[in-house]
Amino acid sequence: MPKAIRVQDYGGPEVMAYEDVPTPQPGPGQIRIRAGAIGVNFIDIYFRSGAYKAAQLPFTPGKEVAGTVTAVGEGVTGFSVGDRVATGSGEGTYAEEPLIAASAAVHVPDGIDDSTAAGMMLKGLTAEYLLHRTYAVKPGDTILWHAAAGGVGLIACQWAKHLGATVIGTAGSAEKADLARAHGCDHVILYREEDVAARVREITGGKGVPVVYDGVGQDTLAGSLDSLAPLGLLASFGSASGPIKALDLGLLAAKGSLYVTRPTLFTYASRPEILAEMAKNLFSVVQSGAVKIPVNRTYKLAEAQQVHRDLAGRETTGSTVMVP
Rank of each mutant, 00 (worst) to 15 (best):
G318V: 04
D310E: 14
E315K: 14
S241A: 06
V211T: 07
Q305V: 07
F266H: 14
G242F: 05
L258I: 10
I189W: 03
T316Y: 05
G223D: 15
K292T: 15
E315C: 11
V295I: 06
K245S: 14
G242I: 06
G313F: 00
E273V: 10
Y259F: 11
Y259D: 05
E194M: 06
K245H: 09
L233C: 04
L231C: 13
A253F: 03
L247F: 00
R181Y: 07
V212Q: 10
C185D: 05
A229S: 15
V295T: 06
A198Y: 04
S284Q: 10
L228D: 11
V211M: 06
G206S: 11
H308V: 11
S319P: 07
V188K: 06
H187Q: 08
L228I: 11
E202D: 12
T317D: 05
D226Q: 12
Q306I: 00
R192W: 06
D226E: 15
R192M: 10
D248M: 00
Y259T: 09
V286S: 09
S224K: 04
G184W: 10
G250A: 02
S241T: 05
S270C: 01
F266D: 15
A254H: 07
G223W: 09
Y191S: 01
D195C: 10
V212F: 12
D226H: 12
Q218N: 06
K245Q: 13
L179S: 05
P243Q: 10
S224I: 07
V212C: 10
S239Y: 02
V188A: 08
A279V: 02
E315G: 08
Y268V: 03
E202C: 03
D248N: 13
E277H: 01
